[in-house]
Simulated assay, not measured.
Amino acid sequence: MFEPFPFFLISDKNPKDGLFIKQPGFCIKHFKDKTERIFFDHIILVRGWHISPSGFSCYVDENKVIFGIRIIGRFDREKTKRKLQVTDFNPILTEDHFYSILNEFNIVSRLNEHVEFNNQTIHEIRKLNQTIKSNSEFAQEKITNREGIENIENHVKRIFSASSLITTRLNIVDLNQNPELLGEKSDIGIYNKFYKAARCLESHEKRVAINLHGESHKTINSYRHFEILPVVLLENAVKYSPPDQVITVIFSEQADELEISIESIGPFVLPEERELIFLKSIRGSHALKTNEKGSGIGLYFAKLICDQHSIIISAESNISRSFDYNNVKYAPFTLILRFVW
């Protein structure tokens, strides 16, 4: 990440130097002191300016905390004077100067983020395209040899799944580049979109089953990219699930409400992380310990789509039924969607 000031990501709380200002020696030495730790735990969800117990300015952004700097009117001059060493480069800045520097670095960071996102998407599309190619070749061979229709059907399912996921990837690219370009709305059947997403993902190599319980005839007047939502949520559940597990999607419909619960097994999510995992580039601390590659954008896009359609999304993780798998703590994980008409 291109950051000008000392910072840590809310997801890992691992302090790093900025490119313009590095961490003061006092902050490096005392970052994990009890008083400082309690302070940072308290402010991470309160965006804006704060003054740390040691007197330095702190700024909470969407997914990170900037600390160890001095902003006029936002720091304790006497406290910081006693804590800074001769070797510390820690100029006093105005708020305008701070925001100006931050914005310049954010432009570079966003450009880099887009490049990484597009590179990852291209890699995923190539992998899906290879799935289509290999299964097409297998199906053609079986047709030529007049083998059983059931064998051919499995390959056709994988081709359909990969093709649908490529479409989803391209729609996500559009949404990432133009989140405000919403287009026109139309009525979409909610259950049908989840059913289609489940069928697309059922042939995944992890052999994870996706079962739908209950039903719903509700429709939602939505933008075209709403159909990304079921795929992203179910794919996230499949991605982090151990092999041979079952993902259950439960539909509970009332007169003017619909609740959809997606129940799976995944890395345990700490209580303080259950809102943070919907922020961009944030993954839970236990998810980071898995071998699954990820950029922390799946649930971010899910939350973005939910907000655009007035859908409430939340997460639960049950520590009482946790267990260790490959040195990672796993537990039942539930994503809940609430629709109100």
Rank of each mutant, 00 (worst) to 15 (best):
G55E: 08
G55V: 10
G55Y: 02
G55A: 05
G55P: 08
G55N: 08
G55M: 08
G55Q: 07
G55W: 05
F56H: 00
F56D: 08
F56Y: 02
F56P: 04
F56A: 00
F56M: 00
F56N: 00
F56W: 03
F56Q: 00
F56I: 02
S57E: 12
S57H: 03
S57Q: 07
C58W: 04
C58S: 00
C58E: 05
C58D: 07
C58A: 00
Y59T: 05
Y59S: 04
Y59A: 08
Y59G: 11
V60N: 03
V60I: 01
V60F: 07
V60S: 00
V60D: 00
D61K: 12
D61I: 10
D61F: 12
E62K: 15
E62H: 15
E62C: 15
E62F: 15
E62W: 15
E62Q: 15
N63K: 14
N63D: 11
N63L: 11
N63H: 14
N63S: 15
K64P: 13
K64E: 09
K64V: 11
K64A: 13
K64N: 13
K64Y: 13
V65F: 02
V65S: 05
V65I: 11
I66Y: 09
I66M: 08
I66W: 13
I66N: 05
I66H: 07
I66C: 09
F67K: 02
F67R: 01
F67Q: 02
F67A: 06
F67Y: 11
G68S: 07
G68C: 13
G68F: 12
G68D: 13
I69L: 02
I69G: 05
I69E: 12
I69N: 01
I69K: 00
R70H: 11
I71L: 12
I71K: 06
I72T: 14
I72E: 13
I72Y: 04
I72C: 09
I72S: 11
I72L: 09
G73N: 07
G73M: 01
G73E: 13
G73S: 05
G73Y: 03
G73K: 00
G73C: 04
G73D: 11
R74F: 11
R74Y: 14
R74M: 08
R74E: 14
R74W: 09
R74I: 11
R74T: 11
R74H: 14
F75M: 06
F75D: 12
F75W: 04
F75Q: 03
F75S: 06
F75E: 06
D76W: 01
D76P: 08
D76S: 03
D76H: 03
R77T: 15
R77C: 14
R77V: 15
R77F: 12
R77E: 15
E78A: 12
E78D: 09
E78P: 10
E78I: 13
E78R: 10
E78M: 09
E78H: 09
K79Y: 03
K79F: 01
K79V: 01
K79W: 00
K79E: 07
K79N: 06
T80L: 06
T80N: 03
T80W: 01
T80P: 05
K81G: 03
K81R: 08
K81T: 10
R82G: 10
R82W: 12
R82M: 07
R82F: 05
K83R: 11
K83V: 03
K83N: 10
L84G: 02
L84F: 01
L84Q: 06
Q85F: 06
Q85L: 07
Q85P: 02
Q85R: 08
Q85N: 09
V86H: 09
V86D: 10
V86N: 11
V86M: 13
V86F: 10
V86S: 09
